[in-house]
Amino acid sequence: MPISRFHEAQPLAPGQTVDLSPETVQHIRALRLESGAAVVLFNGDGQDYQGELTLSGKKQATVAIKTEVAVESESPVAVRLGIGMSLGDRMEYAIQKATELGVLSITPLATERSELRLKGERAEKKQARWQQVAISAAEQCARARVPEVAPVQALADWLQTVPLTDLRLVLHHEHATRLQELPPPTAITALIGPEGGLSEQDLARAQAAGFTPVVLGPRVLRTETAPVALLSAVQALWGDY
């Protein structure tokens, strides 16, 4: 039976006995784990910390950390995604699958065609929820680093933050350039539009910022499917598939 993994946002080290967060305790209770069970903790530093669980009542638990193991599960190609925000659970699906496929970071973007508009406290709550989706996906897929889900940004502002060394791509079904025609990159920043795609103005802004339009086959992909297709292709061409 696989050993259960849990994210703990606190310093971890062999020899420590750590108090688990209420969220982790609730998860452990749902899994019906018992005292003495072997578990793995991680905090995003690239290590897994293996230890033994002790339950103390219904709402408290500790783990005595015994060993520390470096986890080599990060993609050799650093991929940063900017995704136009969409309604419903599309963003959560995209974040979950992108995490499983090795994305480095995700920025939710307000574009001209974004139907979801977020500001202030509502934007902060959504960001926290999306970050938790990434954490849960990292737990499941055995990553020891959690992709950052950045605060919501306007597209124009985000375009100014892209690292100069990255290969810059914007997905667009009306263009003919394919991934295999590009030179092998070590880092990629990719822009994906919301439902309905990017407007002509947003596409022009991206191209002016050095983004190359690319197409992922002859079919039009949904906004939540595009990150999965892109990251799978990147891993197959240049990554760890």
Rank of each mutant, 00 (worst) to 15 (best):
Ala204Cys: 06
Gln127Ala: 08
Ala150Met: 10
Leu167Ser: 02
Arg143Ala: 06
Ser56Gly: 04
Gln16Thr: 13
Ser21Glu: 04
Ser73Glu: 02
Val103Gln: 06
Glu139Thr: 06
Ser75Asp: 01
Met85Arg: 10
Ala229Ile: 12
Arg219Glu: 05
His7Met: 06
Thr212Ser: 01
Asp166Gln: 11
Ala204Gln: 05
Ser114Gln: 13
Ala209Thr: 12
Ser56Leu: 13
Asp45Cys: 09
Glu139Phe: 13
Ser21Gly: 03
His173Gln: 15
Arg32Pro: 04
Gln235Gly: 10
Lys97Gly: 07
Gly210Leu: 05
Leu198Ser: 03
Arg222Cys: 06
Asp89Ser: 14
Arg113Cys: 11
Val63Arg: 00
Ala176Thr: 09
Leu55Asp: 01
Leu116Ser: 13
Ala154Trp: 04
Arg80Ala: 03
Ala61Lys: 01
Gln26Ile: 13
Val103Leu: 13
Thr165His: 15
Arg145Ile: 13
Ala37Val: 09
Ser56Tyr: 08
Leu169His: 04
Ala156Lys: 06
Glu224Gly: 05
Pro147Thr: 07
Ala142His: 14
Leu116Tyr: 03
Ala61Cys: 01
Thr223Met: 12
Thr165Glu: 15
Gln10Arg: 15
Thr107Glu: 07
Ser105Lys: 01
Ala236Tyr: 11
Gly84Ser: 10
Ala226His: 05
Val215Arg: 14
Ala128Leu: 14
Val170Arg: 07
Thr67Pro: 02
Ser73Ile: 03
Thr225Asp: 04
Lys126Ile: 09
Thr67Trp: 05
Val149His: 06
Leu101Glu: 00
Glu124Asp: 06
Glu139Tyr: 07
Glu23Arg: 13
Thr161Ile: 15
Met91Ala: 10
Gly51Glu: 00
Gly46Ala: 07
Glu195Ser: 11
Arg143Gly: 02
Ser4Trp: 09
Arg222His: 11
Gln10His: 08
Pro22Asn: 13
Leu203Tyr: 01
Lys97Thr: 02
Met85Gln: 02
Val63Ser: 00
Gly46Tyr: 00
Thr54Pro: 02
Gly46Gln: 07
Thr189Phe: 12
Ala187Leu: 13
Ile135Trp: 08
Gln47Arg: 05
Leu155Ser: 04
Ala209Gly: 03
Arg168Pro: 14
Thr62Arg: 11
Asp240Trp: 09
Val71Ala: 01
Glu121Gly: 10
Lys126His: 12
Ala128Gln: 15
Ala13Asp: 08
Leu159Thr: 07
Leu179Gly: 03
Ala94Lys: 10
Gly196Val: 01
Glu195Met: 15
Thr165Cys: 15
Leu221Asp: 04
Leu41Arg: 00
Thr107Cys: 14
Val77Arg: 15
Tyr241Thr: 10
Ser75Cys: 05
Leu221Phe: 06
Gln16Ala: 10
Ser35Met: 00
Arg205Met: 01
Glu72Phe: 11
